[in-house]
Amino acid sequence: MSQDFTFTVRSVAFDEDYRPAEDTRTTTNFANLARGERRRENLRNALTMIDNRFNSLAQWDNPNGDRYALELEIVTGEVQVGAEERQHRFPAIEVLKTTIVDQQAGKRLAGMVGNNFSSYVRDYDFSVRLAEHNRDRAEFGLPEGFGDLHGQLFRRFIDSEAYRGIAGKPPVICLSVSSSKQYRRTDNHHPVLGVEYQNDDASLTDFYFGKMGLEVRYFMPPNGVAPLAFYFAGDLLTDYTTLELISAVSTMESFQKIYRPEIYNANSPAGPCYRPSLEHADYSLTRVVYDREERSRLGVEQGKFAEEHFIKPYRHVFERWSANGAVDQSRNKVAFS
């Protein structure tokens, strides 16, 4: 592995006392929830939603529906490029680590790592580079090598000793389905993930996460109203325990109810053919305040921050990765052993 870079990780508890660090992406969903006069109530309500959903899915030996609680940590993967830059680390990737607390057995169990995903470089790709590429084009297109750098950063982070020090398995990222695509229900049903949906027309997010070595499957969990997109390496259904899968569903379905209530807190479930829409009017709001407009507005600013402080200063290193064939388009999965 190249010595052009090293990774370190730092983490902070996501609880009702959470306050974003100064270099946290201001559009990150967690930072958005942790502001304002009602920040503690906001955070407490979100965490309660997650615990309640976990217990509703883990029903066995849980008659009162309160056996389990989830502890959440926001994990930041920082990258240092070049040995001469020892004092500068760029916060490249952010994921969410869960720990399952079995309050009946008095045990703490590893939950899913991944869940949420945020990245300054992804902001740059989508809010700056992609926008500039298509500004004067009659038809939408992708810049050459779109997603290659981000894909390499992610792969290298997951292969690093820093990541392996906090997780024994590759991450699973759980996102909203695309509002520009249609999904059809299949006969496949998983006891935790629920009924599987398929999409024959890959979204741009599917393409982008493919550069990260991840493939996607769509499942609508029991008593859910819309499928979630699960991005993973390996075998989603056999590589993770039942409780690990429940930790991902309960965490990210709860967040999606807050972020996209039109889809995930709709008052009627998805049918056999489903096209999600943020224009859907028949939905309920949670008791958690979330500023979606602010998140969109700040994406451009954060993309430009990445360009100025990471993309441009280390362009020579990234060009060397490309020249050495660092991005292997035929590689479909993240290596992990």
Rank of each mutant, 00 (worst) to 15 (best):
S160P: 10
A58P: 07
V81L: 15
G114Q: 03
Y208T: 08
D17R: 13
V225Q: 03
I166T: 09
P20S: 01
I263C: 06
V101Y: 10
R129V: 06
A13P: 14
A69M: 13
V225R: 10
L96N: 03
V249I: 09
H150Q: 12
E293H: 09
T6S: 15
S254D: 01
S250N: 07
F336G: 11
Q152I: 04
R260F: 11
G224D: 13
R39F: 15
D66S: 13
E78K: 14
N332K: 07
Q182C: 03
V177R: 04
A323W: 13
Y208Q: 03
G65C: 08
N116I: 12
S296C: 10
R108W: 06
Y314P: 13
L228P: 10
R275G: 04
Y314A: 13
E215Y: 02
F140T: 05
A335I: 13
F54Y: 15
S2D: 12
E293R: 12
V12E: 09
R19T: 02
T6G: 15
S127D: 10
P221K: 03
Q59D: 11
G271K: 15
A13S: 10
M252L: 12
P191H: 05
Y208L: 12
T286G: 00
G36K: 07
G106A: 07
Y218W: 06
K333I: 12
S119N: 07
R44H: 11
D206N: 01
R275N: 03
T98N: 09
V195E: 05
M1S: 14
K257S: 08
F14S: 03
A69R: 15
R39V: 15
D23R: 02
P261N: 00
L278N: 00
A248N: 06
P170Y: 02
P269M: 14
R315V: 13
I311N: 05
A281N: 09
S160H: 11
P222G: 05
N29A: 15
T242V: 14
R164Q: 11
M220F: 08
I311H: 06
V195D: 05
F7V: 02
E253W: 12
D201G: 04
K97M: 11
P276K: 01
T238M: 09
A248G: 04
D235W: 01
R297T: 13
L237I: 07
A131M: 01
Y264G: 08
G106H: 02
R35D: 14
V121E: 08
L33Y: 08
L243C: 14
S127M: 12
L204M: 15
G106V: 04
V172L: 04
S178A: 04
Y18E: 02
G106S: 01
Q104V: 13
T205E: 12
V327Q: 08
S56M: 13
K181V: 03
A69W: 14
L214D: 02
L243F: 11
L142C: 02
